[in-house]
Simulated assay, not measured.
Amino acid sequence: MRISGKRTLAKLNAFDLVVTVALGSTLSAILLQESIALAEGAVALGLLIFMQFLVTFISVRSRGFAKAVRSEPTLLAHDGAFCDEAMKRERITQEEALSAVRSAGGQDIESVKYLVLESDGTISAALRADRAAP
């Protein structure tokens, strides 16, 4: 994990999650299956780490490529009202959104300045100062 870097352990985007899961799956296959040679497993691990490095290297330098491999944050609610089309598109229910509002210290959707589905799948909430919980 140290070779692949901190990015592998971070929740940055779906690609990093897939690489992390693939690394774990590959490592377990190497350790548990006698039919896989250690050299083959090491090549597979190295290839996964190299692919992650290559994708992130290119995405930092090319906006178009970055847009193709990363998801963008989505506004789910704004000024106390849900953005219904965005919630349908992202398959987020109002109950899930309200759970994120409560986790941020709000009471209801009216207490939200904005609610954003981040590219890592978490929901961030900014509360309106006049409606925040005491």
Rank of each mutant, 00 (worst) to 15 (best):
T74S: 11
L127D: 02
I123S: 04
A129D: 13
A97E: 01
V112N: 05
G106W: 10
S103N: 15
G41R: 00
K67C: 06
L32K: 12
D120L: 03
V112F: 07
F82G: 05
L75N: 06
G5D: 03
V21R: 04
G5Q: 07
V60G: 10
L98G: 13
P134D: 11
R131M: 05
T93W: 01
G46K: 01
L75Q: 04
E118G: 01
S25P: 04
G41N: 00
L38K: 10
V101A: 09
A14I: 12
P134G: 12
S111E: 02
I30K: 02
F65V: 14
M87H: 02
S103D: 15
A22W: 00
E96A: 11
R91K: 14
Q107F: 11
L31Y: 12
K67Q: 13
L48E: 00
D130T: 14
S124P: 00
E96T: 09
E110A: 15
S111C: 14
A42C: 02
G121C: 07
D130V: 06
I3H: 08
R61M: 11
A129R: 14
R91Y: 06
A97M: 10
G121W: 05
S28I: 07
M51C: 14
G46Y: 01
S111W: 01
S99W: 08
G121K: 02
F65N: 07
L117E: 04
Q107G: 15
P73M: 06
K6M: 01
V21K: 04
K113T: 07
K88N: 09
T8A: 12
T26L: 01
S28V: 10
V116E: 01
R102M: 12
S25D: 02
G121F: 06
Y114W: 13
I123T: 02
A66K: 14
R102K: 15
K6N: 07
T20Y: 11
L48T: 01
K113Y: 11
I49A: 08
V21D: 05
V55D: 02
